[in-house]
Each structure stands twice: as structure tokens, then as C-alpha cells.
Amino acid sequence: MPSEATRLSIVLVEPNKDRAIQIIDSLQDAGSYDIHVIAENTGLARAVVAHNPDVVLVDLANPSRDVIEELSLASGPMDRPVAMFVDTSDDTMTKAAIEAGVSAYVVDGLRADRIKPIMDAAITRFNMFKRMRTELETTKKALEERKIIDRAKGVLMKARGIDEEAAYQLLRRTAMDQNKKVVDVASALVTAAGLLS
């Protein structure tokens, strides 16, 4: 069991360099830790064991999570018992971690109050990543939809000899009549036009 005086060592499994740097910054703000980043999936088990960490942080979305899981089992090669971090007295933190997309493996006997700042920092940072990803996806989707609608407008303008505004109104009216989204009507039109040309 690590004594109160020793600095906790943390292994962060994160292939993305920018993300890794941001997580390290957050952790350093929360306390004083020895942090090692492992970016490679090959040889992961060996690399983790070599560092003999107190805490392993891994993105829930990383398929290599199962490799860490194996290390945490009694039959695994790690000589210290490690468990997926589950605070049984208060599982809101575990739930928050899963929501945020981070999982932590913690060496047995480490006190919950020593882990809490690490978890809090990681959860906050991962939630930020998640928000950024959602925003990026929303922007990308909006862009794609606009492209489709523009193409559908083009099809209508050419086929019916109307201007852009009239073409858009026609799409919008049709969508309303059919209780559909404008982009769905546009997409159907573009597909149909592709088939007919």
C-alpha cells in the first residue's frame, strides 16, 4: 500500500497527444503526481506493468481497455491487486466517470480521498472532450445537410426554371406537407435526380 507521503504514480493510456497533454495539465492542477503516458496499443500490457502504477486511467472508448482489465485480474501478471475503480460507498462518481467516458484502475488499498481529486480532474477533462466532440459532430452534420439542400435547390432550379428562394420554399412546403425534415426531402430528391439523369 502506498504511504501518504509518496507521490502517486499514474499511467495514462491515451494515443492522442493533444488530449494526453490536456489531461496531464488537469491532473497537475489537482495535485502532485508522477504521470506516464502510453500511446501505443501494441505491447500495452508490458508497458503498464513496467511502470507499476498506482492508478491507470484509460478512455472508455479505447478498445484496449480490455487489456487493462486483464491486468487487473488476480491471474494477471501485475503483482499488485488492482481493481476497476468503483466507490461502493458512493457510486455517483463511478457513474459520472462512465458518463464522461473515463475508467480508472486503482491499486488495492488506496484511500478514496486520495483518488477523488484524480477522478474529479479526469472526469471534468473528459466531459470537456465529449462536449467538444458533440459540437464538432453537430457542426459537421449541419454542413453536410446544407450541402444536400443546396444540391436539391439546384435540381429544382434547373428542372422548374425557378430561382433559389422559390426552390427553397418548395422544399420547405413539401417537407411540411409530408411531416418530414427539409433535409430528408432534399436527400430523396437528390437521389431521385441521380437515378433519372
Partner: peptide, 15 residues
């Protein structure tokens, strides 16, 4: 799900 342990946790913790 990205991994079996991830799926197990999603189930165990109600996601």
C-alpha cells in the same frame, strides 16, 4: 460498445 469491460460497466451502472 468499444470493449467488453466497457459494455459490462455500461450495463452494471445503468447506462
Amino acid at each position: 460498445a468499444p470493449s467488453w469491460s466497457g459494455l459490462r460497466d455500461m450495463l452494471a451502472f445503468g447506462r
